[in-house]
């Protein structure tokens, strides 16, 4: 089980801020592929990976990052702080 969290329009498209996903995905990209195949709302949220960022255990990573031992994955748009 892995905690998956979503922010901003990614959260709005998926419809929940956080969920537990039962997965054996080896990388972030594998998880994206798995969720995309699951339901349209995921396919919609993950349709353009260039406009998405991902963090693994609260550290920014690339989509090929491994998920071994990871507790939390977060998907969100490019940040707009400041």
């Amino acid at each position: 089980m892995i905690d998956v969290v979503y922010f901003a329009w990614v959260r709005e498209r998926i419809g929940v801020p956080r969920e537990q996903i039962d997965t054996t995905a080896a990388t972030v990209m594998d998880l994206v592929t798995e969720l995309t195949a699951r339901e349209d709302r995921y396919a919609l949220a993950f349709s353009d990976l260039d406009s998405l960022r991902v963090a693994v255990d609260q550290e920014l990573v690339d989509f090929d990052a491994p998920l071994v031992g990871v507790r939390e994955v977060a998907f969100f748009p490019p940040m707009t702080g400041g």
Partner: peptide
């Protein structure tokens, strides 16, 4: 400021 804008996880 430059780094907070695009590397701190806030969304407006």
């Amino acid at each position: 400021m430059d780094y907070l804008k695009s590397r701190a996880p806030f969304w407006k």
